[in-house]
Design a protein around this nucleic acid. Sequence first.
DNA 1: ACTAATTGTTCTAGCCTGCAACAAAAGTCG
DNA 2: CGACTTTTGTTGCAGGCTAGAACAATTAGT
Lengths: 416, 416
Amino acid sequence: MSGPRRGVASEELRRHNLSTVLDRLHIAKELSRSELATQTGLNRSTIRDLIGELARLGLVVEDRGTTGTGPGRPSSVATIQPAGAVVLAVELEVDFMAVATVGLGGHIFDKVRVAHSAGPRTPLEIVEHLATLSAPLLQALPSDATIAGVGMAVAGVVRRQDGFVHVAPNLGWSNVPLAGMVSARLGFDRVMMANEADLGALAEYRRGTSGRNRHLIFVAGEVGVGIGIIYDGKPMLGAAGYAGEAGHTMVNPEGRMCRCGAIGCWETEVGEEALARLAGVSTEEAREGLTAEILRRAHAGDPEIFTALNELGRWLGVGIGNLINTFNPDLVVIGGFFQELYPFLEQSVNQSAQEMALTAPWLSVRIRRSELGGDSALIGASELVFAEVIANPTSFASHLPTSGSGELSPVTKDVG
Amino acid sequence: MSGPRRGVASEELRRHNLSTVLDRLHIAKELSRSELATQTGLNRSTIRDLIGELARLGLVVEDRGTTGTGPGRPSSVATIQPAGAVVLAVELEVDFMAVATVGLGGHIFDKVRVAHSAGPRTPLEIVEHLATLSAPLLQALPSDATIAGVGMAVAGVVRRQDGFVHVAPNLGWSNVPLAGMVSARLGFDRVMMANEADLGALAEYRRGTSGRNRHLIFVAGEVGVGIGIIYDGKPMLGAAGYAGEAGHTMVNPEGRMCRCGAIGCWETEVGEEALARLAGVSTEEAREGLTAEILRRAHAGDPEIFTALNELGRWLGVGIGNLINTFNPDLVVIGGFFQELYPFLEQSVNQSAQEMALTAPWLSVRIRRSELGGDSALIGASELVFAEVIANPTSFASHLPTSGSGELSPVTKDVG
DNA sequence: ACTAATTGTTCTAGCCTGCAACAAAAGTCG
DNA sequence: CGACTTTTGTTGCAGGCTAGAACAATTAGT
């Protein structure tokens, strides 16, 4: 991420403060100037200036504050402007693709989710499909909307630097320069991607009920098993973006061969295939069919299913205990199909995680299921791009005039 | 660590730049002004000003540059002043205590290492012992030396926030407010501690031949097994400082009971006890005796030892593969007794790590033995405190005048 | 000795935030 | 209903910090 330390000048200061204010507004959607001043520690006059600049950039609007909270002049309220920066968020799964237009503040303009037959598809087909799906969504955006870029959640091993898909087993891909292809086909410069567990973690941290815990682990059970890590409020992606492949850590040397080639990976004990095996269900059934079927039987009181879920929960707990010892997080969030099954897993997960974890890190951690539901990957994908916008609001909207009165100066339309 | 984002003013800018320059000088020991300007991107005039302030704080000295590299006026050279900030670095082990006085730039003024009989000792005894050992070292420092604080490496689970030893099994301690005790006994305000693996990682990153890799994992084999993590150039300590207890992650559900109470921890396969067991040596022998004995036999070509080391290396490699998949580091450094045995472990470690790791993260990682030798914990302990000094050079030396000409203004002596 | 190259030194301009003084807009209380 | 209190917006100024330009200093090369 950041290189060795460099010196900075006043403009960097401005960028930082602008970014701080925009970040708070992005999360809270609206804040009064006085709330902003308190939260950031900046002076009234500085906040005024910063909000003015953000308004000029089209990222926020300011209204006269409403009254009611006590004596004193009501404070002006700054509201995030969703159309100021819109992300085309994409979730690419084995059996469906979801696309959404998400604006600043997390506002979802539109969303489509199209199932398709599972199995291998070429990257070109997928990109074409994406273009078809996204066109109407982009059309439907307000005319003053600015597209910030594309954020994608991909079930696979993705290099973050250039959005290169090293391998995506369920899609049958390897070595696909996906970001470049999407960029070329859709015509957007900024195309960012990461795997769904990383993005689930980001979504939980930014938009979940994480209570602003700054160290969290998101455990995603999909076809494979992966984790996303937020360390000190930032995504921990590793040197190349491959971090979080905890599904492929050995927990059982006497276990089964994993599709990665190694033996006894965590995934072989808690992945979807393990679930099907334990429950005595054919793997042929589709993913959603499987969990639905198991939930149905569990609610019906099928004892075989309880045994299976207890066994799965036990292994899930062991892995989570391992993660607690390794990372010392203050929150572990359960996502993917684990989340759907969690009521039946909770007890065994807690028990075996506690057995595994050392006392000290165990005492300060909470384990919770995700509450974002199925949108978690899309939200994370959008936040990936928003992070860039927020880090440098000015350069993002560099086509706009950066000085002069907002109301008076005419905005030059792009020609071409 | 850092809380939610706050706004900053110009003083913060200054602090950042001062810190940047001091950091570079701390690592390089001396740099010309022009080198600093190039590296930091700051202007000549700014560098001059910053160096001036650091000189006034007594942290660097400036000399006329030596000539020789080409035409042009020689650039002044700033040299780090070791006595400007001296850390009392302490390594607390089961069978010995090491104490050193380390100055800025990593200069070691003095060092003592005293063996004592293993086994439980009370915290009070240890603190008293430390006071006795450190007194002559502090006496021997130059009269103008400023003590920055105490940094300690402790073999145990330590809360970084307040230096609270949650548990240190080999010392027989639990719930010891060690930092507070040391602070009270020695009279230094700043007492910081962490476990030896965290500090080994820090030492490797700051003073090892890490090649400035910003993502590294240090694997420390002592009585227990722990890892230290550097993520993006910063120590990753977790929410409370307990991160890195990878020795207590399950790798073998059919394995042995660990002293932590769980079954099949990595430590039970690669820790010192496992080594003794595999080699058929009594655990009674002291730590150093054990590795020396095994090295002797290995050099003599004892086939039983080769089998034992291969088995240990295999498990070590599995765990390292797990870590590579989880963290995607660009460097793994082998420390502790693993480092001493590494020539005999290397092959099996590499083989099983490669089998375990996914292709993508495996291709970009290197595995190397530590080259810092036995000083790694002491160096890390000093860097822990130096990080604080470097983060805020001005407030560190707040007793000195912060303005006016360095040569002319008299320094007020502390009274009392 | 003269020239080119590089860096130190000094002064000024520009950016940014904080502060103080005043104005504006609410609630409160008699 | 009006004076008072409280809180916040507005504005102009001061202060801190870095960049840049102009000039001086110092060295190598010819």
